[in-house]
């Protein structure tokens, strides 16, 4: 598998570390409900198809990346810096 790091270009997957679903970027406030926290920490969708994920270019530029990957085919659809598109 290859991931096109916006900073480094296309690199082999061995350079990257997988964290999990991109919803991990949406951390609840400290006073959010227990359910919200439970959802954030433990509950994940398991889509067969496109899936937004967070990857770390650990053996490269250390960037955290938002990767859209098709879980059925491993096709990488888009890659952006994790903080892009954050509002």
């Amino acid at each position: 598998m290859r991931i096109e790091c916006p900073q480094c270009g296309a690199r082999d997957v061995r350079e990257f570390t997988y964290l999990g679903a991109a919803v991990l970027a949406d951390r609840p406030d400290a006073d959010a409900t227990t359910e919200a926290w439970q959802d954030y920490v433990h509950l994940r969708d398991n889509p067969a198809g496109p899936h937004d994920e967070l990857w770390h270019h650990a053996m490269g530029c250390s960037a955290w990346l938002r990767v859209r990957r098709n879980t059925l085919t491993h096709e990488i659809l888009t890659v952006t810096m994790a903080q892009e598109d954050r509002t």
Binding site: T17, L19, L24, A25, R27, L54, H56, A58, S62, A63, W64, M81, A82, Q83, R86
Partner: peptide, 17 residues
Amino acid sequence: AGEVMAYMDFCAQVLKP
């Protein structure tokens, strides 16, 4: 050491950009 560094990257880049 490595785990903490990666996690700090996560906090700084993703949670508190």
